[in-house]
Computed example of a mutant assay.
Amino acid sequence: MQTTRRAFLASAAAASLLPRTGWAAAGDPAYLAAAATGEGFRLYGLDEGGIEIFSLPLPDRGHAAAAHPQVAEAVAFARRPGTFAIVLDCRDGAQIAELASPEGRHFYGHGAFTADGRYLLTTENDFEKGEGRIGVWDRAEGYARIDDLPSGGIGPHEILRLRDGGFAVANGALDTHPDSDRVILNLATMQPNLTYLDAKGAIGEQVMLPAAIHSNSIRHLAQAPDGQVGFAMQWQEDMLTAPALLGLHRRGDAARFVAAPDALHRKMQGYAGSIAFSGDGTRVAISSPKGSRVQVFDATSGAFLLEREIADVCGLAALESDFITTDGTGKLCRLDTAVRVLADHPTEAWDNHIVPLLRI
């Protein structure tokens, strides 16, 4: 039965009645990461050292996942323009359900739960209308789809639950259609934005990019402990002319754009694949699989701090003052003053993201 948006908003209190198997019962899994293997695509649960706890097959290439805020459960998403999402029990990796995007839609590879855990929000493309939408799924009803909301732009790639219970959406502005695979249909008129939604899904503040960098697609998001939002971008024109790929924003202020010194910035090849703040909030990092490097900045001043080369690196997650990385060669590394290999999975090529579980 289709539920109205008003009912969706009014029923959040019922989430306290949901059965819960908390993260303490999940044991060792600390991260989720999708990978390509010689036998297809799989999703892995990894411990803090990068050792496999479980894995399960995926119908096609995966991208990222959303961890439930209380229950040992997560949803893993297909890579754009995929149409599946897998709900799994993070105690043992058992598949609970498989979701499919509605007809005329595809997922963008990301999603987020509401703070109470009742609803899953998914970033989607209405590819006939060229509009960004946020799908709403009710976990209490077996992940029934009950509504959808405007994303505030075109091409909403990542949605991030914020510490105040609202959400940030990276509207990357790429108008694409599955019939044309990933070809950009609106390069000349792109208007990326960072959109804030309140806890009820209403659009609030929006941050637009300057016209001179309108081709800088906002793709991935992270939030520091003090509330600052970071966003990673991907330049859609000549990589030699790429502007800053990292933006920093505080509500009510203008966005700041920061980059490494020019010679190092060019090595990113116009592409930031993931972003993370360190656990203590003092540093922020972006990765580039095209440039095979991670660059780290001071989260307060935006000053460039360091760069580390890691072949085909993309996945980033926070440690206390450092970062975890995953790459296409199968390695999971700790990045601090040096790069230390924690685990090596030579038969797996890690996809774009590594998603923390125990640190949510």
Rank of each mutant, 00 (worst) to 15 (best):
P59V: 07
G132R: 09
H106V: 11
D253Y: 05
L32F: 15
G82P: 13
G111W: 11
L160D: 10
E309M: 07
G279T: 05
S292V: 07
L306R: 14
L56P: 10
Q70R: 01
R91M: 02
L32R: 10
A14N: 10
D298K: 00
G155Y: 08
L162I: 04
G49Y: 01
T83F: 09
P210T: 07
F127Q: 09
V229R: 01
P178G: 12
P289Q: 12
L264K: 07
A260H: 02
E320L: 05
L58A: 08
L240D: 14
L316H: 07
R80V: 01
E48G: 11
D262P: 03
G50I: 04
A272S: 14
H249T: 03
P356M: 07
F231N: 06
D336W: 02
E307D: 15
G291Y: 07
S151E: 03
L358V: 02
A112S: 15
P192L: 05
V313K: 09
G227L: 10
P289M: 10
G93H: 04
G38R: 12
W350C: 11
A242F: 09
S55H: 14
A285E: 09
L149N: 04
R161A: 13
F113Q: 07
L316I: 12
C90N: 05
G273A: 13
A12C: 04
R61L: 12
G227M: 09
P59A: 13
E158G: 06
E309S: 15
G153C: 06
D344E: 15
L185H: 15
I96D: 01
L187V: 12
D298E: 06
F257I: 02
E103P: 05
R133P: 00
L121H: 13
A343Q: 13
S287D: 10
L187P: 03
F41A: 11
F231M: 06
C314A: 15
